[in-house]
Amino acid sequence: TETYTFDSEDQAEEFAQRAQKKGYTVEKRKENGKFKVRVE
């Protein structure tokens, strides 16, 4: 499980979609103005 942090929602969304296409489970959340994407 890895967590990635992005400054913009667009970046987080793009990353999450790519990860989902590769078959990963993706969980997105906003925390302290940053966008976190957890991938497993």
Rank of each mutant, 00 (worst) to 15 (best):
S8G: 05
F35N: 02
T3I: 12
Y24R: 06
E14S: 08
V26T: 09
A12V: 02
E2W: 15
T5Y: 13
R38K: 12
E27C: 14
N32K: 07
V39L: 11
E31Q: 05
R38Q: 10
Q11A: 13
A12T: 01
E14L: 09
D10S: 10
E40S: 15
E31V: 10
E13A: 06
T5E: 12
F15M: 03
Q11L: 11
A12N: 00
T3G: 04
Y4F: 12
G33A: 03
V26R: 00
T25C: 15
K28S: 11
K22I: 08
K36S: 10
Y24C: 14
E2S: 13
N32S: 06
S8H: 09
V26S: 03
Q20V: 12
V37E: 00
V37Q: 00
K34V: 10
Y4D: 01
K30T: 11
G23Q: 02
K21A: 12
T1C: 14
R18V: 10
V39D: 01
K28P: 03
K30W: 14
V39T: 04
D7W: 06
D10R: 09
K28Y: 13
F35H: 05
Q20C: 11
E27L: 08
E27G: 04
K30M: 13
V37F: 00
K21R: 10
N32Y: 04
D7H: 05
Q17V: 11
E31D: 07
A16Y: 09
V26I: 08
E2L: 14
Q11N: 05
D7C: 13
E27Q: 10
G33F: 03
D7R: 03
N32C: 11
V37D: 00
T1E: 10
R38L: 14
A19W: 13
E14Q: 09
V37I: 07
G23Y: 03
T25R: 11
D10I: 11
K28E: 05
V26P: 03
N32I: 02
D7A: 06
T25Q: 12
A16Q: 04
V37S: 00
Q20I: 14
E13S: 06
E27M: 08
A19V: 10
G33C: 05
G23P: 00
R38G: 04
G33K: 03
K30S: 11
Q11Y: 05
E14A: 11
E31S: 05
Q17W: 07
Q20H: 09
T25W: 13
Y24P: 02
Y4M: 04
E31L: 04
Q20L: 14
K30I: 13
D7E: 10
R29V: 15
E27R: 06
G33S: 04
F35Y: 11
D10N: 08
Y24L: 13
T25M: 11
E40R: 13
F35I: 09
G33P: 01
Y4T: 03
